[in-house]
Design a binder for these strands. Structure first.
Length: 276
DNA sequence: CCCCATTGGGGTCAGCTACC
DNA sequence: GGTAGCTGACCCCAATGGGG
């Protein structure tokens, strides 16, 4: 139908294949070839759909999130192009929102014509220059380390777990462990919503500050608690920013919670504890 | 030293033409 | 007859090599 009446209607399979192929292979040649063979929409139409979808979505979270738990995660995103001197590669801050149970967009994508400048202006994160309000974190004092010569009474647990393994079957692996400790209804699969990137070095204080502000504004907009997860180096910087804000700041008012993921060195310990 | 070619995705524009 | 989908041509990006 699409091949015989290309200008009269848009068939979903052909448009879907075109978007899919463009997303996976990013090849104008491939899309155009498939189009001339009648298997997918034209490159022009694919681009039009993509810009319309991006424009309609903006920085919105998809669907109705009023019954979902939303947490934001931010980390550095790198595009390590192999240049000769290693320069001019992309290093930015990427932000996602994890929504549990997941939601998805249900409204149709309108077919709108957008200029490049309009697309660029749609999903912008305001860059806020960071100027420390105080140096509270600098006054942190560390407790004295205790003598670590104590005997680790759990050092035989690995051996125990190996011995117990064939005796106590079945024992869940990582994926089954969560099912073992979880009681009650399964809340449903989560969905992930991609938010704009910040074209600054992720460890830059201004970049982290802008990320915090963006997430705080999103949380305010949706009337949810701002929960933001970083990896450990960024967590420390983000925490110092929030701690040093003046009383009554946006972060304080909206109860900002910043978390960090367990360090990967912690995972074997967590794994072992799962057998205890 | 200058000019032109290579790579491929994306942007732009002119021109053609199907469709309303 | 007007509109807009579509195509093809051309240019841009950057580094490098080859020919004149």
């Amino acid at each position: 139908m699409q091949a015989s009446r290309p200008r009269a209607l848009i068939t979903p399979l052909q448009l879907g294949l075109g978007v899919h192929v463009h997303h996976n292979f990013a090849s104008r040649f491939l899309v155009s070839t498939l189009n001339s063979l009648g298997f997918c929409s034209s490159y022009y139409e694919v681009q039009k759909f993509e810009s319309s979808a991006a424009a309609v979505q903006g920085v919105d979270l998809p669907g109705d999130i009023s019954n979902s738990f939303v947490q934001f995660v931010a980390d550095n995103v790198d595009h390590n192009t192999r240049t000769i001197d290693g320069l001019n590669t992309f290093h930015g801050m990427g932000i996602i929102a994890g929504i549990t149970p997941g939601t998805k967009r249900t409204q149709p994508i309108p077919r709108i014509a957008f200029s490049t400048d309009e697309i660029k202006a749609l999903a912008k994160i305001e860059i806020k220059y960071y100027k420390p309000q105080s140096d509270r974190m600098a006054e942190l004092s560390y407790a004295e380390l205790k003598n670590l010569n104590t005997l680790d009474k759990t050092f035989r647990l690995d051996l125990l777990s190996v011995i117990v393994w064939p005796l106590k079957y079945p024992i869940p692996m990582w994926s089954g462990f969560m099912q073992m400790v979880q009681t009650g209804d399964y809340p449903g699969k989560s969905s992930v919503s991609f938010l704009p990137m910040i074209d600054l070095n992720a460890s830059d204080m201004t970049c982290i500050y802008s990320t915090l502000n963006f997430v705080a504004n999103q949380a305010k907009r949706y009337d949810i608690t701002a929960i933001l997860t970083f990896d450990q180096p960024l967590y420390w910087k983000a925490l110092s920013i929030v701690e040093n804000e003046n009383p009554g700041s946006t972060f304080e008012v909206y109860g900002f919670t910043i978390r960090t993921i367990p360090h990967r060195d912690e995972l074997p310990r967590l794994n072992r504890e799962s057998y205890e």
